[in-house]
Design a protein around this nucleic acid. Structure first.
Lengths: 242, 242
DNA sequence: AAGTGGTCTAGACCACCGT
DNA sequence: CGGTGGTCTAGACCACTTC
């Protein structure tokens, strides 16, 4: 034996020690915490062990480090509301219900003025267009009107829309895309009321979503969700996991 | 000199090398990637350097590692929609507009049946109750009806509601809380229409939010956002930062 | 038994910050 | 100048998986 035996979990202990002091409020934002050599003494650890514990907590957003001056408790992160289940089939499955899709339209057609602008391409370019009504246990839940850049989904006319959504299919093919989303309250048109089996004057959520990759806009969609059935459920987070 | 000179940025190079291969699709989910000794040869790095590069990418969600069998490309993360600006004052400031708050109610009152249940405490316990109308450039944007556990915000009756929201004040005092949120489309009552200066039959977004800490429910609020003005803007993400 | 990742130590050089 | 963090090397022991 040439070196002292390792103490398993040492790094974990340091992590927990620091997190506990931060989440309990004993150390608050901006406070300077002990230096690496300080923790080396406190825990009888080598510098690499301490360093990587602190580095990890920095990556996780608990600490901020400044070479030359020290390690400080990071300012709290802003809160965000996060909505999972962007895929309606997953959402319905998570509730233990049954999904069914009725395809009202599915075509390749030249882009109109509005559509060409949304896709940042020429009027008359071909776009894939689908209108799908999604049912949860035979109750209409969402009316989806979607445009897709055909090159992003070559088999767009062949996808089985009963077992997978166009959104999930698109995202599966090339993960790591980005997008934006807007949510408004609207009154559905009479035609939409009929399709969604909604009484007059019952408002709906309108979700407008655009997704792009480095090559440009991939898809643009408008989802209409009926009345109380269409409520969106999200969670409020500040931290990336304590 | 007893050791070979360090090669600065080596770890970064390894990170970028791997991320590039994953995001480009050259390596896809489930693929096995070279072992630590593999990367040691490829980059002329020590094991600790390679190990921490891989560990970092694991923490960031790009890789999955199994001791004994190898390192693999992680399955893509589910997409989520993320809404920042939970604080309406920040939201309005981000648009470069001016915020003003009109306090319609601010009192400490015993909890009713409904409220006691929402807070998981006894009927008749004291709760702080505020109703605030938020204006953006003198146009009513949001009607906030909020209950707060008094012990979570001892100075609740004294907070200056013009310069800060109750939500941000609460979250500031003890970060690292969690919460849930629901969004529905509703028709405002005549009284709400009047307050928010909204025409009849114009639907609103209703956002219901509850936040809690280890000790129990901290606050419950219902926010009403008028028509088009109240549109929520979010972004679609899959990754924690490439 | 060989290979893989998980962890820790000890020692080193560097850039930066503050006095 | 001394202290702080940033980075890398070399060597070690361990548990687990695979053959």
């Amino acid at each position: 034996m040439t070196t002292r035996p390792a103490a398993p979990g040492l790094r974990e202990s340091i992590d927990r020690h620091i997190i506990a002091r931060i989440t309990s409020g004993e150390w608050s934002a901006g406070d300077r915490i002990p230096s690496e050599s300080g923790f080396m003494e406190m825990f009888g650890a080598s510098r690499m062990t301490v360093h990587h514990a602190l580095r990890d907590l920095t990556a996780r957003g608990f600490l901020v480090r400044h070479a030359g001056s020290g390690t400080f408790v990071a300012p709290p992160r802003p809160y965000v509301a996060e909505y999972a289940h962007l895929d309606i089939i997953e959402e319905i499955a998570a509730r233990g219900a049954r999904h069914r899709a009725q395809v009202l339209k599915r075509e390749l057609a030249p882009a109109g003025t509005e559509q060409a602008r949304a896709f940042e391409r020429g009027e008359g370019d071909m776009l894939f267009h689908a209108v799908i009504l999604h049912f949860e246990d035979d109750v209409p839940l969402e009316l989806e009107d979607r445009l897709i850049a055909p090159e992003a989904l070559p088999d767009c006319m062949a996808v089985d829309l009963g077992s997978q959504t166009l959104f999930s299919r698109l995202m599966l093919m090339r993960p790591y895309r980005e997008g934006s989303e807007e949510v408004r309250a609207v009154l559905p048109t009479p035609e939409e009321q009929r399709l969604m089996a909604i009484a007059p004057h019952v408002p709906c959520l309108e979700i407008t979503r655009r997704t792009w990759s480095a090559e440009g806009v991939v898809t643009a969609a408008r989802m209409l969700r009926g009345g109380d059935r269409g409520t969106m459920h999200g969670r409020i987070r500040s931290m990336p996991a304590a």
